[in-house]
Amino acid sequence: MGFFSDVYYCLIDPVVDAVKENPGKTALIVGATVATGGAALAAAPAIGAAASAAGLGVAGGTLSGAAASSAGLAALGGGSLATGGLGMAGGTAVVTAAGAVTGAAVSGTAVAVTSSKDA
């Protein structure tokens, strides 16, 4: 067997089977993941400002408003585009991904706990 067929049978196939067997639970987890990722995306400017106020970035703690938001998001994104980082877009992606992963973990755990009680 090749690498891709091994990956399919070890990783992808069990996930596909779990989704087929539990479509309602899968929908709940996906919904929570999308909701928390969307909330994190909407909150990214505020999170960027908080990151700047906490001291991240070149002028961390000295900026306010949109400048603080921009600097904080750029710091979370690995720095400005000019310095080789991903800039504000990278910071927004980090914040959104962190929110989505948190939502998936919490909802997945909640589904697993309630499923074990049903069995």
Rank of each mutant, 00 (worst) to 15 (best):
M1G: 15
G79W: 07
D6R: 15
A110H: 08
A93P: 06
A71V: 05
K117V: 11
G90Y: 08
A42T: 13
A46I: 05
G103D: 00
L76Y: 06
D118E: 14
G79R: 09
A32W: 10
G60M: 05
K25G: 15
G37I: 02
V58A: 12
A67V: 03
S64C: 02
D118Q: 12
N22S: 12
D17K: 15
S115T: 14
V94Y: 12
A66V: 07
A35W: 07
K25I: 08
G78T: 12
P23V: 01
G65A: 03
L81A: 11
G72W: 07
G103V: 00
P23F: 09
E21H: 11
M1T: 11
L56Y: 14
L41I: 00
G79N: 00
V101L: 15
V94D: 01
V101G: 02
D118N: 11
V106N: 05
G99I: 07
T96H: 06
S70C: 02
G90E: 03
K117R: 13
A67G: 04
A43M: 06
L81C: 04
A46F: 14
G77W: 08
A89S: 14
T92Y: 00
V16M: 13
I12A: 06
M1Q: 10
T96E: 01
V16T: 11
A27Q: 12
L63I: 01
S5R: 15
A42W: 06
I12R: 01
I47F: 10
G84P: 00
A50E: 09
I12M: 03
A59I: 00
S115E: 13
A100R: 09
A110W: 13
G31W: 08
I47Y: 02
I47T: 07
A35G: 09
L86A: 15
D6M: 14
G90W: 08
S107D: 01
A32I: 09
S107E: 13
K117W: 10
A98N: 08
G90T: 01
L41Y: 14
G55V: 00
G31A: 07
